[in-house]
């Protein structure tokens, strides 16, 4: 508990931890939006989410090694992944969209293994990273340091979230996506090409992951087998926030980021991820308890 003592002695550390957590959470939020979208609209849990993030990272890394500034990798990775997402939908996902959830879980799990190995073949298992060349922000006499890249990631996430909300609310495609999410059959009767909507949704998800990957490669390091962490975190963020709740996704991503960092500091890094899993269990228990009570009411 000496770590806790440390926090009381120097509360400024708390600022560092929470700031770090929220900024990091914003990157998770990007991948989590995508997952929430695909899950909500198509009823597919995309296990390959983390691998899309890694592909986005490698797209950016490739551009970076060709001399392009990695920040340009954010739109570039989004575009590449959009196309790739569309292709994957046309090849694989459309076959599993109306099937049992278990089938799509298996299919995307297979995809994730395939992508890992392909990335490994192309880029080798070496750890890669791209240097954004951005500096670090010093606050409180240098006790709190915030790398600019994390701030950039934060702002970008909020901007993309804003765009996404506007897009879903007001654009034709966005409205079609929402209609399909509410009732696919009714949407089809009203003349919406749900197959196209699904393809667009999946591609959009991939694009979001791509953007997240570009930020990941600038903030941390990437490796073909690092994707799982992002899949798991997206999953948790979506579960905590609930489906179809974009602001909820952002808040829960920030909260999880901060909670994770605090747990890592106080309990030690070995409990950083375990703590978050524990939190997930608690959230699920509380939720199922509440649901049960509600059900009794309805009877």
């Amino acid at each position: 508990m000496s770590n806790l003592q440390l926090l009381f002695d120097a509360p400024v550390l708390l600022v560092q931890l929470i700031a770090d957590g929220i900024l990091v959470g914003s990157i998770f939020a990007l991948a989590a939006y995508g997952m929430a979208l695909v899950w909500g609209v198509m009823n597919v849990i995309n296990i390959a989410q983390g691998e899309f993030v890694m592909i986005g990272g490698y797209v950016t890394y490739t551009l970076y090694s060709l001399g392009v500034h990695p920040l340009l990798g954010v739109p570039a990775a989004a575009i590449v992944l959009f196309v790739l997402g569309w292709a994957i939908y046309r090849l694989v996902i459309f076959r599993v969209v109306d099937r049992d959830l278990f089938v799509s879980l298996l299919a995307t799990f297979g995809l994730s293994i395939l992508i890992q190995q392909l990335l490994n073949q192309i880029f080798t298992s070496d750890v890669q990273s791209a240097d954004s060349g951005l500096d670090t922000l010093f606050l409180f006499d240098g006790m709190v340091t915030v790398p600019h890249i994390k701030v950039v990631a934060f702002v970008l996430t909020l901007a993309i979230a804003g765009c996404l909300v506007v897009f879903l609310k007001s654009s034709r495609l966005g409205q079609a996506i929402r209609a399909t999410a509410q009732n696919a059959r009714a949407a089809r009767i009203l003349g919406i090409d749900t197959d196209r909507v699904y393809a667009a949704t999946y591609a959009l998800n991939a694009a979001l992951c791509g953007a997240a990957g570009a930020l990941v490669v600038m903030t941390w390091v990437i490796q073909p087998f690092q994707g799982l962490a992002y899949t798991v975190r997206s999953f948790m963020i979506v579960v905590v926030a609930g489906l179809g709740n974009l602001p909820g996704v952002i808040v829960s991503a920030f909260g999880l980021g901060a909670a994770e960092n605090l747990a890592g500091f106080i309990l030690g890094a070995e409990f950083q991820i375990a703590f978050v899993f524990g939190l997930l269990v608690v959230v699920l228990l509380v939720r199922s308890h509440r649901l049960k009570r509600q059900r009794r009411y309805l009877k």
Partner: peptide, 22 residues
């Protein structure tokens, strides 16, 4: 400080914050 980093973790900032403090 004696932190064990989980395999899945690619972020050391919590540990490094501690290093800055002690």
């Amino acid at each position: 400080i004696d932190d064990k980093l989980p395999k899945e973790l690619n972020d050391m900032s919590a540990t490094l914050t501690k290093v800055k403090a002690v």
